Amino acid sequence: MAKKMSPAGEQQVAMLCSELGFTLQGEALKNITGYLNMLQKWSVVMNLVGPRSWEPMLRTLIVDSLHLKRFLETLDFSVVADSADIPMQIWDFGAGAGLPGIPLRMVWQEGEYHMVDVREKRTMFMQMVLAKYPLPATNVHRARVEDFMEGRAPAAMMVSRAFMPWPELLELLTGKIRRGGFVVVLANEPAPAHDVPDASHGRLLPEDWSLTAQYEYSVEGSPRYFWALSSKKAPN
């Protein structure tokens, strides 16, 4: 018989976040604790993520979202911000169990955030989380990303956590990101440059994109990176 796992408590989550270098409190602490407990419960049924208990989920998965908030706060969105009446559009493709999007939105709520996944169980889980822990301007779509983008105005930012290799991703997003907008990639290696290829694919950064910023951190002793690749080209 499988061992029953204990649910996370807010004090436990706050202490572990503090150990990881983050202060979590108030509504954000309540929501992330609740999300961890839902992720722990439903991962047994749906096989949503690799870890099966909330502690490694927080250490190896949720922590990405907390670092992502820090990184996004260093980026200048003024060149792609819409008017006050039209929030900037942010896309998160292959959102899966809502990572990094759901915990990110629990601590960072700029713009209008769209999580897209084609898998029914994943989108159903994300909708259950948002029904219990509503987040402003945060949406879930069950769709192919090509269908989701069809007819939509270009986005200010797209977030990718293992959605597809970055060279194919930039090709997919040609004409879909506003000039000066960002593609934010979570990777295990430094970003490519125009004259230095990346280690995984041996590809140079295309001339239509520039590396605006890079953020490095460590998870369980292994390096991880966020890259912000900025579009130099106006949308089609």
Results as ranks from 00 to 15, higher is better:
3 K>T: 01
5 M>N: 07
7 P>A: 15
10 E>W: 11
12 Q>N: 12
14 A>L: 11
29 L>R: 01
32 I>E: 08
38 M>R: 07
39 L>E: 01
39 L>N: 01
49 V>A: 00
51 P>V: 12
51 P>R: 15
51 P>T: 13
54 W>H: 07
56 P>N: 10
57 M>V: 09
57 M>K: 05
58 L>H: 04
59 R>P: 01
61 L>M: 10
64 D>K: 09
69 K>N: 08
73 E>S: 12
75 L>T: 09
77 F>M: 08
79 V>C: 01
83 S>D: 14
83 S>T: 12
86 I>Q: 11
88 M>D: 06
90 I>T: 05
91 W>E: 03
91 W>M: 05
92 D>K: 13
101 G>N: 09
102 I>R: 04
106 M>K: 03
109 Q>L: 05
110 E>S: 12
111 G>H: 00
111 G>T: 05
114 H>C: 06
119 R>C: 02
120 E>A: 13
122 R>H: 02
123 T>W: 02
132 K>T: 11
135 L>G: 08
136 P>A: 13
138 T>N: 03
138 T>Q: 02
143 A>T: 03
144 R>M: 10
147 D>V: 10
148 F>W: 13
152 R>A: 06
152 R>I: 01
154 P>I: 07
160 S>I: 06
168 E>W: 10
171 E>H: 14
173 L>E: 03
174 T>C: 14
175 G>N: 13
178 R>N: 07
178 R>D: 06
179 R>V: 07
179 R>F: 02
182 F>P: 08
194 H>R: 15
200 S>E: 07
203 R>D: 06
206 P>E: 11
211 L>F: 05
213 A>L: 08
216 E>L: 11
217 Y>V: 08
221 G>K: 13
222 S>A: 14
226 F>D: 00
229 L>W: 00
229 L>C: 09
233 K>A: 09
233 K>C: 09
235 P>A: 10
